[in-house]
Structures are given as structure tokens and as C-alpha cells.
Design a binder for these strands. Structure first.
Length: 578
DNA sequence: TTAGGGTTAG
């Protein structure tokens, strides 16, 4: 090890004597090392530059500062707490270099520092360097690109972003293509897609990047059909534009169109990137398209694509949502690197497939691996306890959220606790829990109680929960259906009628249920009462056969909301083919 | 010497 170090060091010295810039580049910028190794190299190079007297060269010094700052913006393995710590140390190092620099900073250095802080994001420091720049220099197109992206990533209020936008306008940089697209992105991030539209309209002939950013804005606003028009009119489309469109469909639940677009993308022979596959897998997960999902997985293997954390997580998600929890866990265990998303997806996959104890077991392992859980993880933990009927353990986990992990429980967690008590038949505890909540109970908490009342046939409490729920969310069709079912199960037909009347009076409509399956890559949708499928007659006959077989096997249908899962329907799908 | 758009979990 020693000999090796000595050799590389002397080699570097030789290079450095001739070209110190090459040393900085090759050791820092072009290397793929983690933050802690990078920090050690920074110290080495700093010492070297100092000893050689090279820091008197202002260009070189500035380049060194910029490299150190930008090194911290590389997100190589930033997943762990310790690497995050080293990234911060790199940033601090760049601050100190600037503070002790004998040369007045130029725009390049300050821009680089703003950029580095835009990635953390650390708005306070980004603006500190911006103000420093304003003192003696003029901000340029780079400054605004970085500052806008800092605001997009790190702003909780829109004020700072709007101020930067105003400054960019005043200085004539708002129509620079880079600043322009960053501004669109920023307003989308602020939840102001209409502001993004105004900015988009201000430029005569936007380039592909601004068009793609606008595509994202329209999808964010739910205007997916307008987005499609924009997409179709684009003079050229690169893989990122395709991804934006596919992701838009996927996020809005228009999975069928997402998959259709994916196949058009393929027929145009375009390169398929990780982002595309993640969106496609997410669309498959959403609609339970196991065959398509398997095809994507096979595609990845065929093309020897590396299963990154994101792709692996998307695969786990897809398999478990399609009901194939064995394959989901197989992918999970094979993954080299797992983050909190991966663990949470696997846990939720187990719990939605009824494996509460396994979900809790995985939670234990996750903690053993030193991955800190977050709020989403705890939703699965609490649901796991609910499924497994572990009331006290659930309570302990709930309390540990705040006490051990500093996570303030969300409405969802309170809802899970009500569900936990309610399912276990402890309706009084559920009510006490709601009454002792430090935040105003949301409709979901009362909904969980209502559901528990349905399971345990508690009519009076159910009526009360319903009343509370309607007070908060008067148009929640699910609540009416649940209460109606409570009455129906107790053969209180008058109550059923009352519910129907009050739904009519309040204008509440039951959304038609929809089921989607995929056979041989073709997507079939069925709405309640919908007879438009070309093979409707055959399907109806098959359903009768299936119900008969199920009854013979001892299955009795419960109530309407306990429908067949997509996975169960998919297992019958082959019979539809013939 | 520094840039912008798409991508995961309840």
C-alpha cells in the first residue's frame, strides 16, 4: 500500500510541476471517489499547491476553490449520514479557502460556490455569495442559472425565487435559455404551474429544454392532454422529452398511455434510460400489469443494465403491487445498495400482500443496517402491526417516531393507529385515541373508525363516525358506502335507504369502480356496469364459472368493497386468451 | 474554467 502511495504521489508531483490544473482535474473533478476520500485528496493537493508556491497564481487558486466546492455537489453515494457529513466538510473547506485567499474572487469562483450551495440546498449561503458578488462584480447568466435552481430546490417560500426572477429580468438574463428553463422548473416546484406558463410564453422560440420543462409544468397542473399537444408539436424529441411525457402519464395514473408511449419510443429505436424504465415500471405497478413489468425486467437483463437503487426499488414496487411478492423480495435481496426508499417499498409490498409480521421483521433488519426510517416507513410499520394484530407493539412504534427518530406523526399515522385499535376490536381505545390527538382529526381517522365499526358491527358508533367524517369531507363517497354496508349487514334496510337519500340530497355520487388487466400486452379496462368490451358475453360466462368454482371451494363473498385484486384476476387471465 | 429539462416508497 505504501509503495503504491509513494509512486502515485511522485507521479502527481511530476504532472503538477508541469500542469497543476491537470492535477486538480484528474485528482478531484474526474474522479469518482466518495466524499471522504475526496476530502483527503483536497488536503493533499492544498498542501502541495502551498509548498510549490502555486497559490499565488490567482487563476489556479480560483480553480482550486471552485473544484473543492463543486466536489461537494457531486452526489456520489450521498445516501449515508457520514458521506453527507463529508460533503458539508468540503463546502466548509471551500469557504475557508475563499476567506484566506490573497486574491479578490472573480465571478467564476462565486458562481461555482453558488452552484455548490444550490445542490445541498443551502439558500442562505447561496445568497451570501450572491451578495458578495454584487459588491464588486456583476452577476451573469451563470449566476442566475444557479441561483434560480437554488430557489427551486430549497425554497419553502416563493419570495426569494420571485426576487431572483425580478433581478434576472432587470439585468436581461431571464430569456437566456438556461435561466429560462430553470425559471419554469422553479415555478413548477413552487406549485405555480401558471406562472411557468407565463414565462414560457415570453420567449419566441423556446429550445427543447424549455419545452420539456414546460411539458413537466403542464403535467404538474394535470393538463396532460395539453402536454401531449406540446409534445406532438416539438420540432425534435430527445429521450428526456419522451421521459417527461411518459412520466406525466404515469404520475397521473394514465398508465395505459404511458405504456403505449413507451412502445412508440421503442419503435423509434430510441435509447431507453433509467428514468424511462422507472416511470414505465411505476405505470406497470399502478395497473397491475405483471406481464409488461416482467418484460421490462427481462429487457434490463438482456441489455445487462445495472440494477441501480432506483431501478431496483421500482422493480420491488412493481412486483409487489402486481401481487408477486416473492419476485419482489427476490429482487430486494439481490440488490447491492438499498436506501430508505428500497426498504420502505419492500415493507409496504409485504404489508399490502398481508404479510404483517414479515414487514415488521424487515423493519428490524433495516434498523440493523443503520438506515434511518422516515415517515413513509412508519406508515408501513403501523399497517404491519394492524395486519398482524399487534396493538401494543404498534403503540410503541408510534411513540418511538417522535421520541427516537424525531418524526412528527402525520395524519396518516394517526389514521393507522385508529385502524390498529379498531381492527383489534378495541373501539373504545380507538375513540379515546382520536379524542386525545394533538391535531384536528382528519376524515381518514374517522374513516378508519367507521371501517372498524363495520367489521365489528357497531351501528351507533358508526353513525357517529360517519357524522364526523361528513362534517369534514361531505362528498366522501366511501363513507356513505361503508355506513350503508353497516346497515345492510344488520338488515336495517331503512338505514340503507336513508344513506341513499342523503347522498342524493348532497349530490354525492359513488365513483364507478374500475378494474384494469393486461393480457398479452394489451390493456383491458372495465368500469362498474360497463358492457362495452367486445368479448363481454364470453367474460360474463367465465365470471359465472369462476364464481361457481369459488363457491364450491368454500368461498363466500363478503361485502362490495372487498373486491378481487388485480393479481387474482390476472391469474385467471390466460383463460381469456383462447 | 462554471449552466438549464425527465426518474423511486404510504
Amino acid at each position: 500500500m505504501h509503495a503504491c502511495t509513494v509512486m502515485t504521489t511522485s507521479l502527481r508531483n511530476i504532472i503538477a510541476r508541469h500542469n497543476p490544473v491537470a492535477l486538480i482535474d484528474s485528482s478531484l473533478c474526474n474522479s469518482n471517489c466518495n466524499a471522504s476520500v475526496a476530502l483527503a485528496r483536497v488536503r493533499q493537493i492544498h498542501a502541495h499547491l502551498l509548498v510549490q508556491g502555486l497559490l499565488y497564481d490567482s487563476l489556479l487558486f480560483h480553480r482550486f476553490i471552485a473544484s473543492v466546492a463543486l466536489l461537494s455537489a457531486n452526489d456520489n453515494g450521498i445516501s449515508s449520514t457520514s458521506s453527507h457529513h463529508h460533503h458539508l466538510l468540503l463546502l466548509l473547506y471551500s469557504h475557508r479557502l475563499l476567506d484566506h485567499s490573497p486574491h479578490p474572487p472573480n465571478a467564476f469562483v462565486l458562481n461555482s460556490l453558488i452552484r455548490a450551495h444550490s445542490k445541498v440546498p443551502d439558500l442562505e449561503n447561496a445568497f451570501r455569495f450572491y451578495r458578495r458578488l454584487l459588491r464588486s462584480l456583476s452577476p451573469d447568466r451563470f449566476t442566475f442559472t444557479f441561483l434560480v435552481s437554488a430557489c427551486a430546490r430549497g425554497s419553502t417560500s416563493t419570495t426569494a425565487g420571485a426576487a431572483v426572477h425580478a433581478a434576472a429580468l432587470r439585468r436581461g438574463f431571464a430569456s437566456n435559455p438556461h435561466v429560462h428553463s430553470a425559471l419554469i422548473r422553479m415555478y413548477v416546484e413552487f406549485g405555480l404551474p401558471n406562472a411557468a406558463r407565463l414565462i414560457y410564453a415570453e420567449v419566441q422560440n423556446p429550445d427543447i429544454v424549455s419545452r420539456t420543462a414546460m411539458l413537466g409544468a403542464l403535467a404538474a397542473a394535470g393538463e396532460i392532454d395539453l402536454a401531449r399537444e406540446l409534445f406532438d408539436c416539438m420540432p425534435s424529441r430527445d429521450p428526456i422529452a419522451w421521459n417527461a411525457m411518459i412520466a406525466g402519464y404515469s404520475q397521473l395514473g394514465r398508465s395505459k398511455e404511458a405504456l403505449e408511449l413507451f412502445s412508440s419510443m421503442q419503435s423509434e429505436g430510441l435509447r431507453v434510460s433509467e428514468a424511462t424504465l422507472v416511470s414505465v415500471l411505476s405505470a406497470c405497478a399502478h395497473m397491475g400489469a405483471l406481464d409488461q413489468g416482467k418484460w421490462v425486467h427481462a429487457y434490463m437483463k438482456r441489455n445487462m443494465l445495472h440494477v441501480t437503487v432506483m431501478l431496483g426499488t421500482a422493480l420491488v414496487e412493481m412486483y409487489s403491487k402486481c401481487g408477486d411478492v416473492e419476485r419482489a423480495m427476490d429482487v430486494f435481496w439481490r440488490m447491492q445498495e438499498k436506501n430508505v426508499y428500497t426498504w420502505s417499498s419492500a415493507m409496504s409490498g409485504l404489508v399490502i400482500n398481508g404479510a404483517g409480521n414479515e414487514c415488521l421483521g424487515l423493519f428490524g433488519l433495516m434498523k440493523d443496517h443503520g438506515v434511518p426510517p422516515n415517515g413513509v416507513t412508519f406508515v408501513s410499520v403501523l399497517r404491519g402491526c394492524s395486519v398482524a394484530g399487534l396493538v401494543e407493539e404498534g403503540r410503541r412504534h408510534f411513540d418511538s417516531m417522535r421520541d427516537q427518530y424525531g418524526i412528527e406523526p402525520w395524519h396518516e399515522h394517526y389514521g393507522c393507529m385508529v385502524d390498529l385499535y379498531g381492527r383489534a376490536g378495541r373501539l373504545d381505545d380507538a375513540v379515546d385515541f382520536i379524542n386525545s390527538m394533538p391535531i384536528e382529526p382528519h376524515a381518514g381517522a374517522w374513516g378508519a373508525l367507521l371501517n372498524a365499526c363495520k367489521i365489528h358491527r357497531s351501528i351507533e358508533l358508526g353513525e357517529y363516525a360517519m357524522k364526523k367524517m361528513v362534517e369534514i369531507e361531505s362528498t366522501n363517497d366511501g363513507a356513505y358506502v361503508l355506513l350503508s354496508n353497516i346497515y345492510a349487514e344488520s338488515r336495517m334496510w331503512g338505514g340503507v335507504n336513508d344513506v341513499r337519500e342523503s347522498m342524493k340530497a348532497k349530490g354525492v355520487k359513488k365513483e364507478p369502480g374500475c378494474s384494469v388487466i393486461e393480457v398479452d400486452g394489451e390493456i383491458h379496462e372495465f368500469f362498474v356496469g360497463d358492457k362495452s368490451h367486445p368479448r363481454y358475453r364470453e367474460i360474463e360466462v367465465m365470471l359465472q364459472v369462476m364464481s361457481k368454482r369459488l363457491r364450491l371451494a368454500g368461498y363466500t363473498a363478503k361485502t362490495k368493497e372487498s373486491g378481487c385484486s388485480n393479481a387474482a384476476i390476472n391469474s385467471w387471465a390466460p383463460q381469456l386468451k383462447s
